[in-house]
Every structure is written in C-alpha cells, then in structure tokens.
Amino acid sequence: MSVAKNIGRRVVKRLGASVPALLGVVVFTFLLMRVLPGDPATFFASGPNAGQEEIDELRRQMGLDRPMYEQLARYLYDVATGHLGRSMTTGQPVLADLAQRLPASLELSFFALIIALALAIPLGIAAALKPNSLIDHAVRFVCTLGVCVPTFVSGLLLIYVFYYLLGLAPDPTGRIDIFAAQPPEITGFLLIDFLMVGDLAGWRAAFGQLILPAFTMALFVLAPLARMTRASLLAVLGSDFIRTARSVGMTGWRVVIVYALRNAMLPVLTIIGIVFSTMLGANVLVEKVFSWPGIGSYALDALLASDYAPVQGFVLLIAAIFVMVNLAIDVLYGIADPRVTVE
C-alpha cells in the first residue's frame, strides 16, 4: 500500500531529522559536564585534598589537556560506541546500570500513561458532549486540581491514605516485596514476566507495588489530556463540516464517532507526546517518593553524589527515548491524518 510506503519514508525522514537534535543533546551534555562545573578533574580526584600532581595526572588521563574540539570528538566517539563511562557509586559501567534500571522506569511510565488515557479521554469526551453540564464542571474541577498538586505531594498523600490509614497498599518501597521471588528476567517488565511464567501471586504483588506510583503520575497528566480532548472535540463539534454531516441526515452518534472523534484526536495525539516526555521528567520525583529502582532515582543519587557520568548517561538516554516517542507519535499521526502522508 502506498500509505505504508509513505509512512516508511516519513520514518526514515524523521529519523534523519532527529539526528541533529540528538547531536545537539550530546554536545549540550558535553558542555554541561565539561565546561560549566569548572575543572572536572577536581571532581574525579580522590577528594577535596587531592594534590595538584594527582589532578594533573587525572587531567592527562581524561584528555582534559587536549584542545576542546579534540575532547569533543573523543567524547562523540565514546558515546557512539556506547562508552558512557563508569559510575563511581556503583562501580559499574553506566550503560549496564541504565540497561538494568530502564525497564522499571518504562513499566511505570507506560502503565501510568495507560491509566491516564483510559481516564482522561472518556472524561474529556463526556465533558465536550455536554458542555456546561454537571459532568463538564466536575471534569474541569478534577483537572484544575490535578495540575495544582505536585506529584511528590499527591504520591505521599496516597501512601498515607492507602498504606498507613487503610492498609490496602503494600510498603511503598521498590517494585516488589524484598521477600517475594523475582521472576526470571525476560523482558524486565515485571507484569509481563510474571504472566509469562504463570506466577499469578507474584503478578498481584508487583501490580500492588505499581498501582500507587502509576496512579500518582497519571493524576498529574490527567489534566492536560482531558482538557485537550474536551477542547478539541468541542472545536470540531462546532466546525462547519459537522454541520454539513448533520445536514445530510447523519445520525448524532455516527457524526460523533465517524466525523468528530477522529478529527478531534489529532491534537490529542500531539499532546500525548508532550505528556509522555513530562512523565519522563516527573519519573525522577515519583521514583524518589516510592523508592522505585528506575533510571530517575539512579541519576538523582549520582547527581547528589557529584557522580557525573551516570547523569550524563541518563540525559542521553532520555533524549533517545524522547526521539523514539516522537517518532512513534509521528507515525500514528501519519496514519490518523491522511493529509500528512499525501504531501
């Protein structure tokens, strides 16, 4: 099909276009880590009392005595070959650390996104179909509150209510009870791994750990999603072509489903990309609140310990995820909006 071919061409084009963005991030992290904090060698030295000789030796080892462009070239080469350095706190290569922790963050983010979408889109649609009704006001109220409560506060309050008061949620530390058996590492997504080995009890335990942090995150992004759904559906419902569809006698539901919803979802799709990247950022906060062993808390620990290699690896990884997410959104957009592929 020509549509598939068109989309394929778009993916290639988009990937090509994202190279400068990625390169920009790499250069940015390079500048951030090498130039701004003064002399990195002092950071990497054994301590604040390290002698000048030790620092000079380090500088030579790290190549800091070379001209800037040479350092940049070397850095680019390292990044391209996957050498992100070694974490001082864990003693492991940064790449390995990140790979080990990434599934935890992704599982949390995806699960939260699914919850948010499952709540926000129906709410937005309901509000738009009956503007100024009770449900519309209720949705607006929830949305207004949702953006006002920071994730770290709502997370803690959820812990207080569901763990301390009601005792419904398990101890909010980590992805799984320390005493429970880990599933075999297949995908790294616990919910999927437990299902694959058929361990339902384990699945339930992992789910219990996941639901509060995921809900916290979902609450935060609920508002932009529901608002956008409502606004764009309202705009579409008020547009001329909906009037046309009604003027030829199409029934109300058919008009909404065939004509309005698909058009209204286009801006929502765009906002999903932005929402997901907000969630990548908010991850750091939520992971800290729930002691979630993801990349966010890893980077944060490193940051607080002035261990810069993991931080820079984290920023690069986030940039890469960000590019992938945008690519996916773009492909979906291309499927949903034929005008894009026509050109």
């Binding site: 003027s247 004509y259 058009n263």
Partner: peptide, 16 residues
C-alpha cells in the same frame, strides 16, 4: 438539503 458558504471548511478535511 443544504449547501453552505465557505465550502473548504464545510467538508471534513481528513476524509476523502
């Protein structure tokens, strides 16, 4: 039936 003004916006932009 009706025919409207500004025909470009009177048709669904993402449907053939």
């Amino acid at each position: 039936s009706m025919v409207f003004q500004s025909p470009r916006t009177a048709l669904n932009p993402i449907r053939g």
